[in-house]
Amino acid sequence: MMLIDTLAQGLLLGGLYALFAAGLSLVFGIIRLVNLAHGDLIILGAYLILTVTTITGLHPFVAVLLAASLMFGLGWLLQTHLLNRVLGADILPPLLVTFGLSVVIQNGLLSGFTADSRKLAAGAIEAQSVDLAVVTLGVMPLLTFASAVAVIFALNRLFYRTALGRAFRATSDDAVTAELMGIGPQRIFAGATGIALAVATIAALYLGTRANFDPSIGPARLLYAFEAVIIGGLGSLWGTLGGGIVIGMAQALGASVNPERQILSGHVAFVVVLLLRPRGLFPRASD
């Protein structure tokens, strides 16, 4: 009984991690860019939602629409003016630029919003739960998981059913040939990073309504997201959801043994999976 409950909570927590990871997975897959600032960008998204709700008085679930559009624009600009310039055979420049970005965002938030913990107030829904006889699940965690599935479904549709998605895949497979067919990789990359940051804002909504956040917690989110992507296998969005669930369940199991071991258990699960299956559980891409 306890075990089923723990696993169910872990499954739903995995939804949150999949949301953290979906944007990262998209950018890995299309641009082959490892964005070390992804976690801090999620936190930036949370502060953006907070600012919108404070100024306009909107509910976070409405404010997220505005915040996600702004984050899309930010991602577009970031890719066009910064990241596109450092892409190339050398892996060092993009890594160091995104690492610099991570430190700048973190400390920018720190001087703008102080180190105090903040939270997004979602109202009565925060405390509601659904009794499923075997287990009782919170409405917010259920909503998080449903959103993760919806986001990944939508991204997959976009990827495999639209002209933009075809351009994404073509650029990912062979940027030079795609360019010969009239696809500008720079614009494609800008669009991909824009979408990734819009998804990161959705992740930020659930992060901020479920728990407290402060400017320093970005890097830990990056690690969870990265673990989910690698466990799932590079280039597979549904794999990323699976990876998120593995991390979520491992953390829930670890926490049920000893609350101090929650994060450690997630990391250990990642190491074990990688040792047994170096290419992840559901690999698609070959790198």
Binding site: R32, L36, L95, L223, L264, F270, V271
Partner: peptide, 28 residues
């Protein structure tokens, strides 16, 4: 042995994860 399984850029985050494992392990 572990981190060398991750190529190039992934190695960067892989080492970060291992450092976090060491931190959490030592905390015990």
């Amino acid at each position: 042995f572990f981190a060398f399984r991750l190529n190039g850029a992934y190695f960067a985050i892989g080492t970060w994860v291992v450092a976090d494992i060491a931190r959490l392990g030592i905390s015990q």
